[in-house]
């Protein structure tokens, strides 16, 4: 059983990689700093390590999907990230793609399970 668990872990990790990006983009219509984002996502059941999220934020910024500003008014300076115009556009499209994927996959799996009940198809 532990081997199955190992495979599960690996596959889940692969799946998660892309979904984290969607999760991050979804939360950044308002500016947020890295750690508040980590807390928020984890609270909502999207598990992400700061060591993954921080580099991801920088990458998305480099690609032009996010914009950042340093806020130096608080006790310590924090870097706030927010969707750029293009980032917002990309998120809308990505969100639709994701829904399509979930629908298709659910449909596909339902079909198969239904088929099992009625004998082979």
């Amino acid at each position: 059983m532990s081997e199955a668990k190992e495979h599960l872990d690996k596959l889940t990790q692969e799946l998660r990689r892309g979904t984290i990006t969607i999760g991050v983009l979804s939360q950044l219509s308002k500016p947020q700093y890295g750690y508040s984002l980590v807390t928020k996502l984890n609270e909502e059941g999207i598990h992400v390590e700061p060591g993954t999220l921080y580099p991801l934020l920088r990458r998305l910024e480099k690609q032009g999907l996010l914009e950042s500003t340093w806020d130096t008014n608080e006790a310590r300076p924090r870097k706030y990230y927010m969707l750029s115009k293009m980032g917002a556009e990309v998120f809308e499209l990505l969100w639709k793609e994701w829904q399509k994927m979930v629908d298709s996959l659910n449909h596909l799996i339902d079909l198969d399970k239904g088929g099992d009940k009625n004998g082979d198809d």
Binding site: Y33, G34, Y35, P50, Y54, W70, R76, P77, R78, K79
Partner: peptide
Amino acid sequence: QELRGLITDM
């Protein structure tokens, strides 16, 4: 700077 902020937050 970002990392220092993160560690302090944590």
